[in-house]
Every structure is written in C-alpha cells, then in structure tokens.
Design a protein around this nucleic acid. Sequence first.
DNA 1: TTTAGCACTCCGTTATACTGAGTGCCAGCA
DNA 2: TGCTGGCACTCAGTATAACGGAGTGCTAAA
Lengths: 351, 351
Amino acid sequence: MNGETGDKNLSERAQFLLKVLVERYIRDGEPVGSRTLSKDSGLDLSPASIRNVMADLEEYGFVTSPHTSAGRIPTAKGYRMFVDSLLKVKPLDEQEVLRMRAHLDPSQSNPQQLLASASNMLSAITRMAGVVTLPKREMASWKHIEFLPLAENRVLVILVLADGEVQNRVLHLDRAYDASSLQQISNYLNSNFAGRDLTELRRSLLNELNRTRESMNELMHMAITMADKVFQSRAGEPTYMMAGETNLMDFAELSDMEKLRRLFEAFNHKRDILTLLDKCIIAEGVQIFIGEESGYRVLDQVSVVSAPYSMGDGVVGVLGVIGPTRMSYERVIPIVDVTARLLSAALNPRK
Amino acid sequence: MNGETGDKNLSERAQFLLKVLVERYIRDGEPVGSRTLSKDSGLDLSPASIRNVMADLEEYGFVTSPHTSAGRIPTAKGYRMFVDSLLKVKPLDEQEVLRMRAHLDPSQSNPQQLLASASNMLSAITRMAGVVTLPKREMASWKHIEFLPLAENRVLVILVLADGEVQNRVLHLDRAYDASSLQQISNYLNSNFAGRDLTELRRSLLNELNRTRESMNELMHMAITMADKVFQSRAGEPTYMMAGETNLMDFAELSDMEKLRRLFEAFNHKRDILTLLDKCIIAEGVQIFIGEESGYRVLDQVSVVSAPYSMGDGVVGVLGVIGPTRMSYERVIPIVDVTARLLSAALNPRK
DNA sequence: TTTAGCACTCCGTTATACTGAGTGCCAGCA
DNA sequence: TGCTGGCACTCAGTATAACGGAGTGCTAAA
C-alpha cells in the first residue's frame, strides 16, 4: 500500500533482493532471513528495511514463510520471476561442452544409443533425472520398405528409417498375398515414395487413391491400402527414456515417501510426463515448468527444464531434466540447451 | 547346554514355536514376545517356558532381538528353516488361478507382451516387485531368415523366431553383396536349417564348413560365415523386465532412503539381479533367496522368490517376485509357481 | 525513508520422568 | 526333571517442560 510498492511492477530494489534470496535459497536450501539478506546482498541496508521489502514480496506472492519465525523461501511464482527476468545464464565452459560432445559421438553409436547417452549424460552432470522423448516417427522420413509373408494371412513389414533405425510390424490382413505380389508392392512404394516423411506419405497416398480410383489396377490399390495400414502409428510404444531417477531420492524436498512414490509411479505410467513434454515440442528453445505450474499434482515439488531436438529438418523430440524446484537453473538451463543442440547435431549426419 | 537342545536338531516344540513366531512376525511386523507366543501357540505353556525355548532358538541363530527388551524376530536362517521345513504351501484357490490365466491369454498377445503381463501380474497380486527375465534366445529356434542389402557394405538381417518374435540386426561386412546372392543365401539357410535352435545351428554350420572345405562353392561359404555372424548373440540387450518396484517403497524395512536408493540403482544396472536370477534357471521349481543369503549387499533386506519358465522344450527364463524378507512366503510361493506354469503354457502354442 | 529497539512467535533441542513390554534368572513345585 | 510364578532389570518410545536461537512485525526516533 505504500508509495513505491503500490505499482504493478516491483521496485528495482525488490527485484534485486528477490534475486539474491532465490540464489541463496538454491545454494543452502534454508529459509533466508532478513539479517542474512542484509549482509549477503551487498546493499547497505539494515535487516529492518529488508523486512519491509520482504513483506511486499510476500504480498505479491513471490515468497512465503514456512512458519512465523522462519525466513522466506521462493514460491513457484518467485522462481518464475527469477528465471524469466532476473537470471542471466552464462554460456557453458568450453571444456565442458567438449566433454559433452564426446559422450554423444555419432560415429560409434546408432540413434537409439545416442538418445540413451543423452539422457544418461543429463542425469550424470546435473545429478538429477534426465529424460529424452523418442523421436516422433511420423515426422521422420524412411528409406526402404520390405514385406515378408508369414503364415495365416499375416505379413511382416520391415521399415528402414532415414536414420538407419529399423522397425518391424506384423499386419493381419483379410487375405493371403504371395511373395511376388508383395515384392511388387514394395517396389512400387520404394520407387515412388521413399524419402518422404510418414504423414506426408499417408496424405499423398490418399490423394492418389481418390484420383486414380477407377483406372487403378488392383496392385496399386493393394499397395496403397497396405501402406496406409503400415504407417498408422502404433499405440503402446515406449515413448521416452529416463535415467537417474534415483538421484531424486537424495533431495530433502522429496523425502516424503508417499510423494516420492507417486512421482516414480508417474514416471512408470509415463502419461502425464509425456503430455507435459509434448507441450515443449512447439516451443523454440529451453522451456521450464516450475512446480505446480505444470498442472500435475505429482509434479508439485519438481521442475522440468526441457528443450526440443531435431532430426532431418524438423523438431522430432524433447529432452530435459527433472529435479526439485530448488535446482540451480543457472547451471541446468545451459546444460539442457547445449545437450539438445549436440544431440540434434549428432542425429543429423553432416552432408 | 541343557539336555533337550543339546542335540544338533531342534526339538519338535522349538520348531513349532519357531513356525508360530515367524507366521506371527510376518503378519504383524513386530517383534514377538514370550507372552504373545504363549497365547498364540495353542500350547499350554507359560511365557517363562517359552522364554527358555527362545533362548535356545537364539543360540542356534534362528531368531534375534532388536534390543534387550523387545521380542524376537526371525533371522535369515530362521526364515530359511521356516521355508524349507516348517511351511506347508497350500495350492492356490481355483478362482484365483482362473483369473491369473485370463491375464496371460496367449490368443491376444505376442510373447513380448506376455512377459510384460506376467511381471505386471506378479507385482499386482503380491503388491511387491515382479520380474521376468527375457528368454534366452540362443535356446529358441527360428522359422525364417531374410537379408536386405543396405548402403555401404551393410546388410540388414531379419530373423523370425519360432514364437513369432522378430529381430533385426545390421551386419557390417567386408564387401557388398547384391540382392540376388543374398536371396540365395537366405534360401539355403531357410531350407536347410530352419527350426533348429540357434546354438545347434552354429555347431552344425561349423561342421559343414570343415567337412566341405574344398568342394564347397563360394555361395555356401558366404552363407555359412554370414549365418555365423548373425547368430552370435548380441551384448547390451535389455535382459529382464520389472514391474511394481514402487510397491517396495511401502515397506518399513526399506524406509531407509539410502538403502532404498541402492536397491533401485541395482534394479537399473541389472547386473547383480541378473546373475542371481540366472542361478535359478538350473533349479527345477521354486527357488528362494532370503536376505543376505543372496550374497549381494543391496539385497540384504529383501528376498527373491523365483521359478523357471519354459518355451519349446527347454527352460528359457526365470520369473519371480522381489520383496522384503518379511513377506508372506506361504502366499508368494504358489503364486510364483503357478505364474511360471501359466506363462510356460501360454508361450507354447498347443499342438 | 531508514533504522534501532522491543515484544512476540515458533521451531528444534535437550533434559527428565514415566510407562509398557519384554527379558533373564532363581527358587519352588509337580 | 521340566514347568512356572515371581522379581529385578533393561530399554524404546512418549509425553512434558524448559530454553536458546532465529526471525518477524510494529513503533518511534533519526
């Protein structure tokens, strides 16, 4: 209510003190009192003055006290302000970038392994949990397709993707196809559509189907319906890989067994985590969800720092770090950022 | 030192009291005192007499007390005696068996999914962690093999196993092979060796190679060396699937965060758990490791109840339950046993 | 606008006492 | 000889009170 803090915007000083407070709390994990802040800030202010500012910050919802006579700790909103407006991330040490690059060496790993390395690396250097979503395969292009007849109207489809990843699916069909017509179908698909991404493929196949409805020979018809079946994305696939979940057990914030258990169960069921990560795939760079912001109860006590990575010429997945809200964003943000870039580079063979 | 307990073998009464004690402790989780035992046993003995027996049991190492004035709890040795000699497992309720069978319906799942269902089911009904090792593929036979030329001297091998499981591997070769000679090679292998198990195949291929060394045409030579490469089992594969680890967080025995963490890390690294489970593959039926018996520090507080399952005509893997030493062996043993039988049945198509 | 001073609050720790559960041992009894 | 009641003792866990420390909010003065 008093002059300075009546405005919508916090005073310079209040912002600065919030910054110092958050940094201090991230460092020590203990509520920060006015005396500490008075010494720590470098400003020439007495504890009493600091207390006034704190009262304002509390009123705005940036900080809170665990109880009457403890210091203040940041709220989710406080962290948000800190991350968005107060924090200046320094670029990573060059040495460290080199070390990271070595872990993601494309020459001696396949894409699958690269993803695993990335999540391991994230968990190892941050000492929190690292997560990498598997590439959205619809967006990836493919090199080659092959059909193999099995018993009882079933056909095995082998799909070689642009990155060398191989997928198989078994189709259950309404009638048997002999080896030679299957051969013809795959020839047709390989010569006309190889190299396109999977969604595009489905679209042009449907067009084709409409355009040539009458004139089309049976073979092409078969080919098109079959391809349509193949390229429907399958459900129930594993959808992300995580490493270092156990690191989270060290954090005092998560020492409540009940909460920890729910969190780990969420990791296993994947659903919530995945929809959250999917939201990040549209964003440009590093995206951060702090505590309750995520909208999922289980993630109340944790933050997610994520960044999209790309393959070919589009974003195909997201990687990131999951840790307590009280994490060193200053350190984690550039790490996630760099990892995403390195992984993208490793996944895209230099042309 | 006194007459009765001086023999190597425990008296009838001592054995019976141990049984009651273990059952009681499994039920309540609290040290059992002489008064309780006196009422609970049904024997017409005063607490004082019970105490004498307890002193003997303690001397033999079957029970111990957490502190001077608490009751007794079983040691690993005590549980072992209980499980080996005192416990009589009742067969499972028929209703329950039917419900379990429904979960492992071979008609609407592939083998991969069956294994996952089995481990899920084990964890769900025992409320502990369920684990299933993946089948040893060397012991499985195969139905079909196919080669697909890729760029740069690489060949994609598609291997269809007897259970319908499909595997791919990429071979790096010293020279390029054209599609038609690859076709010939696969024809040769399919018509001469399909249906054998993989170890047997390698053996007969090597024989073949020696026997026909001079007379052999180049094609057969290629085929044989290539097959040899294919059927070398690959390292670094995932080796078991686990479900319900988080159930273990509920047990008071594991409330020590440090121990819990080590346990979960062991689950992730898989190594120790796997060598332990591998030991069970030779045993006939249900095998039990109680606490420290396993020889692995991380498993000090937990027991593993396991049983082998089979496919084709041999044992190929192990499944089981991991839980606190203080688990209801009476319930868990038949569950593991039945699950192993059901899984074996589901994996072996009725002929 | 800032600051010093003061009363107040609340957590965490320590000391103390007390209760309840259980034990080991001994002496007497069938 | 084996069983039992009695007794002194031990020890974890809990409740209670006391106290110091850290921090706050408010007020009055600089």
